[in-house]
Simulated scan of single mutants.
Amino acid sequence: MAAITRLVRHSSSIFYLGSRCLSSAVASEANSHATPFNFHLKPHLQRKDPKDRNVQWVFLGCPGVGKGTYASRLCNLLGIPHIATGNLVREELASSGPLAAQLSEIVNKGQLVSDEIIISLLSKRLAAGEAKGESGFILDGFPRTIKQAEILEGVTEIDLVVNLKLREDVLLEKCLGRRICSQCGGNFNLASINIKGEDGNPGINMPPLLPPAHCMSKLITRSDDTETVVKERLRIYNEMSQPVEEFYRSREKLLEFDLPGGIPESWPKLLQALNLDEYENKQSAAA
């Protein structure tokens, strides 16, 4: 499928550009950035004309905002892979690959995985996907720093960055309500959020995501889902994310989307913001 609608943010307006290739000005700007750390593009990672591929998007947002949930839904709709760098690290750790031992040492010491390793894993994943015929992707939660954004710009073309936003008090409640089934590994949320609108701000309603009965007695809480830890995690994210948001805003690739509620309220509005509501209707009719 050719590249679906690209969104460009300009001042306070969003302009929809049809299913066409990126403008030559934007394309040449992106190609002109040399990547740091001497990452060399292999032939199979050279940029493709957007008209010959599917979307290549990034999803950003605070911990607990729902990046994985909405990215996965969009990937299912568009028929493209959902790539989360955290999963790439875990997969490499579980393998006998060349980086497994190095990653194991880093993780065991509680250190951060370097940008070089993350980009190496991502480049490997993109190359493998292209070899299998994948023509697009959505990156979940990456890049998180300016340095990572600059490196990524030298590895592949990003068409759009969707920044999911949610009030901090709601994020905190969502994170504290998260539960994992110790048996099946399923993710659930016990938080029932119902905030009335006031002072011109809309209300937010998010029902709990309850587990099936056989999982209820096996629910556990993540060790880092405490109020103190969550607040610090949100503070650090907000501090680090602002330069990344500005990086993509200056390139007219940032779409900021305020989640109005849970999935039933937010999903149709997100599709509308991405100009994909009619596309979903056509897919449903064809099914």
Rank of each mutant, 00 (worst) to 15 (best):
G129M: 04
I117A: 05
S95I: 03
R125W: 04
S114H: 04
R125N: 10
K124E: 06
I106G: 01
G129K: 02
L122C: 10
G129Y: 10
N108M: 11
L126V: 14
A94Y: 11
S123K: 11
I118V: 15
E105T: 09
D115L: 08
V107L: 12
A128P: 11
A100H: 04
G110I: 09
V107E: 06
S120D: 09
V113I: 05
A127S: 12
K109D: 01
L121R: 07
S96F: 01
A94V: 11
L126W: 15
G129A: 01
A127L: 09
Q111C: 09
V113G: 09
K109A: 08
N108C: 07
A127P: 00
K109S: 08
P98T: 00
P98S: 15
S104T: 05
A94P: 14
S95R: 02
K109V: 00
K132Y: 02
E134V: 03
I118R: 14
S123R: 15
E116G: 04
Q102A: 05
S95T: 03
S104I: 00
K124F: 00
R125P: 08
G129T: 01
I119V: 12
A100R: 05
G129L: 06
A101I: 01
S95D: 05
I119K: 05
G133W: 05
V107P: 09
I118Q: 12
L112H: 13
L126G: 13
A101L: 03
Q111P: 02
S120N: 14
N108G: 12
L112K: 06
L93R: 08
A128T: 14
E130V: 10
L99E: 01
G129C: 06
E105H: 06
R125L: 13
K132M: 04
V113D: 07
Q111L: 11
A128I: 13
L103Q: 13
E116F: 06
K124A: 03
E134Q: 13
L122I: 12
K124P: 00
I106W: 08
E130A: 09
G133F: 04
P98M: 03
S104A: 11
E134T: 04
S96Y: 03
G129E: 02
A127E: 06
S114K: 09
S114N: 11
A94W: 13
K124R: 02
A101E: 07
L122V: 10
I117L: 03
S95P: 02
